[in-house]
Design a binder for these strands. Structure first.
Lengths: 247, 247
DNA sequence: ATCTGCAGTTGATATGCATCAAGGCCGGAA
DNA sequence: TTCCGGCCTTGATGCATATCAACTGCAGAT
């Protein structure tokens, strides 16, 4: 737990919001998990609003016959599925940390209370959730409007932008994960990469070298209405606010 | 406009929220459009928070080569893409009313102001947006985890439940629209329906008769973690609040 | 070192779905 | 009525992607 919550620092008690914030503070834990940790299962009702401080979380959807695909990735700083927490309904996905990851765990009911009482928090959560909604819309468009090869090409372009290296991109996790994130099998992903080899990229393990960005762009046809913008500070702003509120 | 906004009814001015709510009220329009009306284009920045009072709105995603697919349908009562309004960012989809539809148009900045000032409104919008996010997650799972035939079968089951008729379902709009909503071509949709004919459904124009629900269920494998629940009153509650706030 | 298991690649093949093309069935216009 | 023009269906075909299978390379265990 961060900074000994029970030794209440003397914040003025006269402010209307203070009691609730203090509640949120008192029971909020900070927690770090190793790579591979399952955070929650599909179908569970959230007990905490999880705040991703560092690292990332993969969210998997499972079909009844047991197949699992990567639906989305939440990268720090961000909230882990506020949609499930504010509606107090079951997670639709399983959450797993693919790397050592740090969290803030805020009890779900305290979080809902705080959101209801603190307009700034409400606004921040709303913006974060809105951004997440838009990510899902982008993904749906990606799946419905593009071929597998285009999805792979655009993903590489987005990665290279996010990593600030226009001439290369590092695949952030295993290829079969990325394949399922992009809605295809690992074999198809492998073949798509190989095909792109002929139009100006090089593949060496996790590293993709972009030799001919113009040609790759021409083939993959990136689109600002589908692909994620390189920077978005919603998460950072939301995190700053929550850290202020919890200590 | 609803109920002569300028003849201000004597609400007490002492309450802190009143001025903003009144702003929202003053410039809020009620509007009805005929079937086929385009409400906004992909790429436009929202000028209003549109509230769907009756009817529905189809949201289309467009690729750069001009192909358009139905991404989602917003049915009254609901908010039209609060995610774009609260973040003041461009719509990722085009909005079109496929039937005569009534709206409340709340100026976007007045809406954002009101959300920031009124915790009840903030909570309602948050819940509505959360529900919309969850719908998108369900759709992504649907696309990534199921075959075309399964998607068609489950869609029929959902429609029949929503319409309260376990033995039949009426397709709410043209088949080619539903096909693109389900991520396939109209031909594939047609063939999928025909295939399902052999396992206990009948097709007559827009009407689907479900002769053998058990068999259809066995084939389509509906799943509460993917398919929409029959009832959800989030929209209704949000609408009630907004109507109270706007007069 | 050897064994083992998992990630990835590659090839052969299957199949689901799209595409292309033709024709049927309306309902609306003239 | 006839003549359209959508919408839908159906068939033939092709292609994209999945599936199945074999193999490589590597890392961790013994």
């Amino acid at each position: 737990m961060r900074g000994e919550a029970n030794t209440d620092p003397g914040t003025g008690d006269s402010s209307k919001e203070a009691p609730r914030i203090r509640t949120m503070f008192q029971h909020t834990l900070e927690h770090e998990v190793p790579a591979g940790t399952i955070l929650f299962a599909q179908g569970e009702v959230p007990t905490f609003q999880i705040v991703v401080l560092s690292g990332s979380v993969q969210l998997f959807g499972r079909s009844r016959d047991g197949r699992e695909v990567l639906i989305e990735v939440v990268r720090a700083p961000d909230l882990l599925i506020p949609a499930a927490v504010v509606t107090a309904s079951p997670y639709l996905m399983q959450g797993r940390a693919p790397e050592p990851t740090r969290f803030l765990l805020i009890p779900a009911d305290a979080f809902r209370d705080a959101v209801e009482r603190n307009p700034h928090l409400a606004k921040a959560v709303l913006e974060t959730l809105a951004e997440q909604f838009r990510r899902m819309v982008r993904q749906t468009k990606n799946l419905k409007l593009r071929s597998a090869a285009e999805r792979v090409g655009c993903h590489i372009l987005v990665l290279s932008e996010r990593q600030g290296t226009p001439d290369r991109a590092i695949l952030p996790y295993e290829k079969h994960m990325i394949a399922s994130e992009l809605g295809m099998t690992r074999e198809s992903f492998s073949r798509a990469l190989k095909a792109l080899t002929k139009i100006g990229i090089g593949v060496a393990g996790q590293e993709i070298v972009i030799r001919d960005r113009a040609r790759l762009t021409a083939v993959a046809k990136p689109d600002p209405m589908i692909d994620l913008p390189a920077f978005d500070d919603t998460g950072r702003r939301t995190l700053a606010l929550i850290e202020r509120l919890t200590g």
